[in-house]
Amino acid sequence: MNILHPSSIFVPTDAKQTPCLLGARCDECATVVFPKMPVCPACQTNGSMREVQIGRTGKLFSHTIARFAPKGFVAPFFQVFVDLPEGPRIFALVGAECPVEAGVLEDGMDMRLVLEPLADTPENSDLLTYKYVPAGRPEQRTSGHA
């Protein structure tokens, strides 16, 4: 399977590893960004950004259900922003295990990262990306842990 934005995602190669995002942290001011950038947006230092693994968990900042889908996606689908504990607030989609219904997600809830196809469509079903699901769901399935 191809990976959408491969430089932004760590894909496990053995069962001991867990997937995560690849951001960058500034050596000068400790600002963490996602995706990676060569110049720190906070202190404008060039060359101070080092790759860091982030985003295994997060807290839901905001969410909505889109009732119309752009080409390559299927409506209705959740679109969310997630606050990562390392600092960044990022746009994300929600994993397929989470039913697309009002009341399922609540701002502030703990989320965890999963890797799965971008969308169940001919255009995007072979394209792996990161998504988030509520951390407390009973199944506790984690991609990469067979």
């Binding site: 889109a66 119309f68 752009p70 390559g72 689908f77 679109q79 922003f81 607030r89 989609l93 971008l118």
Partner: peptide, 14 residues
């Protein structure tokens, strides 16, 4: 590429 639309952005973008 991840399906972000302007409508979404007004609804939930920080």
């Amino acid at each position: 590429e991840m399906g972000m639309q302007f409508t979404t952005s007004y609804a939930i973008h920080p």
